[in-house]
């Protein structure tokens, strides 16, 4: 047994989970356990009580409508990835999910759990920022809705207040003329990204009129690469000078990414700039390059 001792409580409903959490300051929510259990195995996390919401049927839904996809907190990453309806409305979901760990992880890990965990190198927070997703939270003071841009505060730090849980996340439908690709650099297939980008680019009459670039693995939270987005506007192809311009812009957007044993600040900057050029070129110039898992 690796985790330290704790009490386990299987919530009977969302309200039951919220009221239980409210009474125990050292309690934690358990969803898929794919981040929490490994960190408890290392005793990096030693909650006194786990409130399991992973079995709640009321949170299991993956609902796709023409307006968007709403995902409950007990819906697994693989359930969303394998939903053709979800992929049709928000193509970025499947594209991003395929990069997460491995199938065995996604079979248990949840979409909302990844958002709550807020790993700076995770794909889904960056997708939430790129698409303008909103989180529905429920806590001791009732329910509230928070936009992704306000939700992520720092590494493993969100706007979730004590006793609050994400009950659902809502991803708005992608506009019909937009294409989304996800691309990242990792040391091994399935590892967390060193850096990565979600690119949603749309054109009308042949030139780009929508460009969203959301980088991850760069800073404390997902980073919008706004100068690079600006370069893309109005382009109908990315020729050599345009690609250079895009590279420079993405490089400066990256700021000063953190350094760790796997990658220096400079390596991360150069990698994100290259990824942005590669990914945007694939979308705008219609390359059929499979781009890893995307």
């Amino acid at each position: 047994m690796k985790p330290a001792s704790f009490d386990y409580y299987r919530a009977k409903s969302v309200d039951d989970a919220v009221s239980t959490l409210a009474e125990s300051p050292f309690a934690k929510v358990l969803a898929g356990g794919q981040s929490l259990v490994p960190s408890m195995n290392f005793r990096l996390s030693t909650p006194s009580l786990l409130v399991d919401i992973g079995q709640l049927d009321e949170l299991r839904s993956v609902a796709a409508t023409p307006e968007g996809v709403t995902i409950g907190a007990a819906a697994t990453q693989y359930a969303v990835e394998s939903s053709a309806e979800a992929a049709a409305v928000v193509p970025g979901l499947r594209a991003a999910l395929r990069w997460i760990g491995h199938r065995q992880i996604r079979n248990r890990g949840t979409v909302c759990g990844s958002l709550a965990h807020a790993d700076p190198a995770a794909e889904l927070p960056a997708l939430a920022v790129a698409t303008g997703a909103t989180m529905e939270l429920r806590g001791p003071n009732g329910t509230r809705t928070v936009a992704a841009t306000d939700f992520f505060r720092g590494p493993f730090w969100t706007d979730l207040q004590a006793g609050e849980i994400i009950t659902h996340v809502r991803f708005p439908a992608q506009a019909p003329n937009v294409t989304t690709r996800v691309n990242e650099i990792a040391r091994r297939s399935g590892d967390f990204a060193l850096v990565g980008v979600i690119a949603s680019i749309g054109s009308s009459n042949g030139s780009v009129d929508t460009a969203v670039l959301s980088g991850f693995g760069l800073g404390a939270t997902p980073v919008r690469l706004t100068a690079a987005e600006g370069v893309l506007h109005g382009k109908n192809t990315l020729d050599e000078p345009a690609r250079m311009e895009l590279y420079e812009a993405a490089y400066s957007d990256a700021g000063d990414p953190f350094e760790d044993v796997h990658a220096s600040t400079e390596y991360r900057r150069e990698s994100i700039a290259s990824l942005v050029v590669r990914t945007a070129t694939a979308i705008i110039d219609g390359s059929s390059e499979k781009g890893g898992r995307s």
Binding site: L30, Q34, V37, P38, F42, L50, R103, Q104, I105, R108
Partner: peptide, 27 residues
């Protein structure tokens, strides 16, 4: 590895492959 990386502990739960080291039995 006991943290979900190596796959040695893979078993099938309700038809889906999972890492048994990264789940609690109670789950």
């Amino acid at each position: 590895c006991e943290h979900g990386v190596c796959g040695a502990c893979t078993i099938i739960v309700d038809g889906a492959a999972v890492r048994s080291c990264s789940l609690l039995a109670v789950q």
